[in-house]
Simulated scan of single mutants.
Amino acid sequence: MLDIVISSRQAEIAAGFAVKRILPYQLRRMVGPFIFMDHGGPISVPATVASSLDVLPHPHIGLSTVSYLFSGEVTHRDSLGVEQVIKPGEVNWMTAGKGIAHSERLEDPAIRAGGTLEMIQTWVALPEKDEESDPSFRNFTSDQLPVFTDTGVWMRLIAGEAFGLKSEVETASPLFYLHAVLDAGTRFGIPQGYRERGVYVANGSVMVNGSTYQAGQLLVFTPGVDPVIVAQEHSTLMMLGGEHLGDRYIWWNFVSSRKERIEQAKEDWKQGRIQLPPADNEEYIPLPETKSKPAGGPPPPNALS
């Protein structure tokens, strides 16, 4: 029933800001088109360190970044000249395509006064035909996203189609991505009609087929099964998946079906050929000094961990 259970690992994305890194994982790099998943927070942000948690301008190619907040606010700026504050329940969907740079800064006075920040960021790989598309950005407010409620269940569909709902968020390949909150004892299924499906336990705990899984774990299900998830307590889940696009290489912030394209992106960033955000161009994250090669290609066989 379960292909693999992935336990999150700690990764520091800024000084003092550690996140739970879920994807990619050595034994399972993707779930459908989702190739990256971080869960940041919840953290209280003291005013004295708020600016140190900013994510400075950095580049992407070959993917869409998807930012979703549980609490707090983050200001996004990108090469297209977009400046957008994202709030809880909203979605920032940025498609990098052939190349874009963006920053994410904590500028909300409430955050700087010690407010709480908690967010999920995923990356969605693009089909090969769209990897060199023009970059784009859209923000979707919470009232643009479909919500379903029933006894013990609250659910917001972030993107794609699931449970008879369809999101306005335009995607480049078939997928689903949703936020579900379950009361203790609630039984819930997962979307059907997709080959690859996963459930990330953001908060609380759930039981599947007699085994209990805790916050910080991603459950990836075998194709074709129809599992029942039982909330052991009040729990928050992120469900995601879709159709497999083929193998992808990933290095730093770059994703591509071709190794050589990632090498080109490295050089483009070093040489300043990827434009910085016009309203945030005085500092940036330099290319990491590492000799590591793009990871990817055919993954090793899956195994429970």
Rank of each mutant, 00 (worst) to 15 (best):
L2F: 06
D3P: 00
D3K: 15
I4S: 09
R9K: 15
R9Y: 04
R9G: 01
E12K: 01
A15D: 08
K20Q: 14
R21K: 15
I22W: 06
Y25K: 10
Q26S: 11
L27T: 09
L27V: 02
R28T: 02
R28F: 01
R29D: 06
M30P: 00
M30I: 02
V31D: 04
I35S: 09
F36C: 00
F36H: 09
D38A: 03
H39V: 03
G41M: 08
P42A: 14
I43P: 00
S44F: 10
V45E: 08
A47C: 04
S52D: 13
S52Y: 02
L53H: 13
D54M: 06
D54Q: 00
D54S: 07
P57R: 09
H58Y: 07
H60P: 02
I61Y: 10
L63G: 06
S64M: 04
Y68A: 07
S71Y: 07
G72S: 12
E73T: 12
T75I: 05
R77H: 13
S79H: 11
G81T: 08
K87N: 10
N92Q: 15
G97S: 11
E104A: 11
R105K: 15
D108L: 11
A110S: 12
G114T: 08
L117M: 11
L117I: 14
E118V: 03
M119T: 06
I120S: 07
I120T: 05
W123A: 09
L126W: 11
P127F: 11
E128D: 14
D130G: 03
E132R: 15
S133V: 14
S136K: 09
R138C: 07
D143P: 00
D143H: 12
Q144R: 11
F148K: 14
D150E: 13
V153K: 09
R156H: 06
F163S: 05
K166V: 06
L175D: 02
Y177G: 00
A180I: 08
L182N: 05
R187S: 13
G189H: 04
I190F: 05
I190Q: 01
P191W: 00
R195V: 02
G198P: 06
Y200N: 04
S205W: 01
V206Q: 03
M207V: 13
N209G: 03
N209W: 06
S211Q: 14
S211A: 13
Q214M: 11
A215V: 04
D226V: 09
D226N: 12
P227V: 08
E233T: 15
M239D: 05
L240Y: 00
L240A: 08
G241H: 03
E243Y: 04
G246Q: 11
G246E: 12
D247M: 01
R248T: 04
Y249W: 13
W252H: 10
S256K: 12
S256I: 08
S257Q: 10
R258Q: 15
I262V: 08
E263F: 15
E263N: 13
K266M: 14
E267Q: 15
Q271F: 01
Q271W: 03
G272S: 08
R273H: 13
Q275T: 14
P278S: 08
A279N: 14
N281T: 01
L287C: 12
K293N: 10
K293T: 14
G297W: 03
P301C: 01
S305Q: 10
